[in-house]
Design a protein around this nucleic acid. Structure first.
Lengths: 237, 237
DNA sequence: CCACTAATAGAACGTTGGTCTATGCGCAGA
DNA sequence: TCTGCGCATAGACCAACGTTCTATTAGTGG
C-alpha cells in the first residue's frame, strides 16, 4: 500500500557491514530494501491473485500493489505480462505429483491424470488460458511421465503418440469445460441456461431430458470417460 | 475509411417516396444511409478479422473501421465486446453440418465430431476462447445431435452423459492443442521448442525420441484417439 | 412542414500494458 | 571514509482499449 513513502527501509542486516572478513555468512544473500522481489515471488502472488479473482482481474498494477511495489518495477524481473501468465500456468503444474510407478501401467496413468485434472480445477483460470503453448519444465515433465508410462506399457510409434495426445486432450477438455461451468458461470446463469434448454425442448429434446447443466457429478463423469479411453487403449496394445 | 466526411450519403431509394400507396414494395426493408449495419454483419466481419489476425487483434475500433463505421456505433447493435465474441463463436458452429443419420451410430458420431473439429481448426482463435460458456443455438443443436445419436445407440443415464462429455471434451481439447501449435506458435518457436526438448534429453528421454512437436500428423492422431474412445464406448454399451 | 424514432458519430473517461528516464540503495575498491 | 558502479525501484508518460454520454442526422408518420 504505502510502502513507498518517505522513510527508506533498512537494508541488509543490522547496521554497518563493511569489509570485515567472514561477514558474508552473516549477511546472507544480497538483500535490497529488505524485501527482495524475485520473479518467483511475482509469480506466486500472481497465482494468488488469479485464484482469488480470476484471469480478468490480473493486471500488472494490481499485482504490483499486492507486492507493495511500484507498477513498473515488475518489468525488471519479468519481461511482459504474458510471461507472468506463462510462468504461472507452468508453476501450478508443480502440484501434480508424479506417482510412484506401479505394476499396472493403467493405474499410473489414472493417478497422473486425476492429479492433473485436480490441479487444473484448483486453479480454474488455467483452463481459459489454453491457446498458449505449454512448454514449461513442469508441464513437460508431466507429459514425459505420461508418455514414458505408456511406452513401458508397450505402445509405440503413432499409437503411442495418439494415446498420449488422447489422454492429455481429454483431461484438458474436461477441465476446461468443468472450470467454465463451475467457476466462471454464475449460479444464476447456470439455472437460466438450464431453463432455456428446457423451454426449447422442441429444439433440444434429448438435452432437455438429460442435460442438467448445473447438476453434474463431474468426478463421476470424468472417471467414466477416462475408463472409456483406457478401455479403448487396452485392446490394441 | 473516410465514410464519415461531409457529404451525406443518399438514403433509401431514389428521390421522394412520400405516402404513395404501394411504394413499400419498391422501397424494400428499412435502409439507412444505404448500408444497413446489422449485428449479423458485425459478427460476420468480426469473424473475418479473427480469422485474419487472431483474437488479440480484434478491437471494437478496428472492427468498426473495417465496417466503415464509427467506433461507438457498434454499441447500438451489440451490447459489449464479449457479446461479439460469444456470437462469433456460436456463428462458426453453423458450419458444422449435421450428418444424415445412418444405420451405424458410430459413423454418425464420427461424421459429426470430425466436422466439429474441422470447424474449430478453420477458426483457430476459437480454441483460445474456451473458458466461456457455450450456450448459443448452434452449439446446443450440435450437442443435442451428439447426445441424441448416443441415446439412440442405447446409452442411458450416467453412461450417456459420460459418453457425450467424453467425446465433446476430446474434440475440444484436441482442437485447442492443435490450433495452439499450428497457428499461434510461430514455426521458429516450434523448432526451438523441439530443440529445447532434445537438448534436455536427460529430463525428457521419451519426449526427445518420440515427440516431434511440429511434425505431427494431426489428422491421424485425432482419428486414432477417436477410435480409442469409440472402442471404449463399444464394449459396455 | 413538424415531431418522433432509429441510427450514427464524436468527445471523453478510466484503465490497461509497456517504455523511457531518473533516482536511490548496497557494495567494492582506494 | 570517500567514490564510483551496477542492481533495483519508482514516476511520468504513451498509445490503445472498452465503454458511456451526448449531440446530430436520416428517414417516417401525421
Amino acid at each position: 500500500m504505502d510502502a513507498n513513502s518517505s522513510p527508506p527501509r533498512a537494508g541488509g542486516r543490522g547496521g554497518r557491514t563493511s569489509g570485515t572478513a567472514g561477514a558474508v555468512w552473516l549477511r546472507g544473500p544480497r538483500t535490497y530494501r529488505d524485501s527482495t522481489l524475485t520473479s518467483d515471488r511475482i509469480i506466486a502472488e500472481a497465482i494468488v491473485l488469479l485464484d482469488g479473482e480470476g484471469a480478468g482481474r490480473l493486471t500488472m498494477r494490481r499485482l504490483a500493489e499486492h507486492l507493495g511495489v511500484g507498477p513498473t518495477t515488475l518489468y525488471w524481473h519479468v519481461k511482459t505480462k504474458d510471461d507472468v501468465i506463462d510462468l504461472a500456468v507452468d508453476a501450478i503444474f508443480d502440484e501434480v505429483s508424479l506417482p510412484e510407478p506401479s505394476s499396472r501401467w493403467d493405474d499410473d496413468v489414472r493417478a497422473l491424470v486425476l492429479q492433473w485434472r485436480a490441479t487444473m480445477l484448483r486453479h480454474p483460470w488455467a483452463a481459459g488460458l489454453l491457446g498458449r503453448p505449454l512448454l514449461g519444465p513442469n508441464v513437460l515433465e508431466r507429459t514425459e511421465f505420461l508418455q514414458a508410462t505408456l511406452r513401458r506399457a508397450g505402445f509405440e510409434g503413432p499409437v503411442l503418440a495418439a494415446a498420449t495426445h488422447g489422454l492429455a486432450n481429454y483431461v484438458i477438455g474436461s477441465a476446461a469445460t468443468q472450470s467454465t461451468w463451475q467457476h466462471l458461470a454464475t449460479p444464476e446463469l447456470q439455472q437460466s441456461a438450464d431453463a432455456h434448454v428446457r423451454a426449447h425442448a422442441d429444439l433440444y429434446p434429448t438435452l432437455a431430458v438429460t442435460h442438467h447443466l448445473g447438476e453434474h457429478d463431474w468426478d463421476d463423469l470424468f472417471r467414466r470417460g477416462l475408463e472409456f479411453m483406457l478401455a479403448g487403449l487396452g485392446s490394441p496394445a
